[in-house]
Design a protein around this nucleic acid. Structure first.
Lengths: 102, 102
DNA sequence: CATGGTACCTTGTTAAACAAGGTAGTGGCC
DNA sequence: GGCCACTACCTTGTTTAACAAGGTACCATG
């Protein structure tokens, strides 16, 4: 979801995304590449190559329509999920079922 | 963390905790029992048996001091983590490193 | 021409959730 | 008395995905 969110802003390449997410939530490089591959397999992103002056060519990822839809759905799930958890943490009185996070 | 939070309110037994968390966040029974075992191994909970009129005896779990400390730490981590994710979702400009969720 | 940064990728290990199934106690129903 | 349903415990096998570690290659600088 975070990757989708970053790509929703603008196209990006794995190394950069990995660096940002490493800093933000401690995600490692070894996680991002298989993930991008999965997302591409799921039709959430497409790729194109672009030369870089500072190293090898970058593989940019771009959200597809399905990717944007997935982001919206995942955000909704995430919101529900965190709300449920918050309810447990404060109330300890859980409520309704969370949809897709299951 | 959710289990610890529930137990912080009052002692509970796995079957009941599982039911609550199944309803709230879709957690299955097959998840809770190994989890309780792990937590006991980590010294976060202790157990005692209590007869029940509606079936076999219940194994109640009680938070230890370490368990209460773990809950506090995990809550802090969770708060930081969700804040970071929220920042990514809105800004797409991640910030500081999250501690223990790594 | 070696080092360090950029950027790609794979492989093996491990953690943990999940589905499914198995055991056993209690009570109610026919 | 036999059977079913509910409670409550637990285990086992499968799958998923993160992670650590390592490998390749490009480019610039000293």
């Amino acid at each position: 979801m975070c990757v989708l969110a970053l790509l929703a802003r603008q196209d990006g390449y794995a190394y950069d995304i990995a660096s940002r997410l490493a800093e933000a939530i401690g995600m490692g490089e070894g996680t991002i590449y298989p993930l991008m591959r999965r997302m591409q397999g799921d039709g959430l992103v497409t790729t194109y190559l672009e030369e870089s002056s500072s190293g090898p060519p970058r593989k940019y990822y771009q959200l597809t329509k399905a990717g944007r839809a997935a982001l919206i759905a995942q955000k909704a799930d995430w919101t529900d999920f965190t709300a449920s958890v918050a309810r447990i943490l404060t109330d300890a009185k859980p409520a309704r079922i969370v949809g897709g996070v299951t």
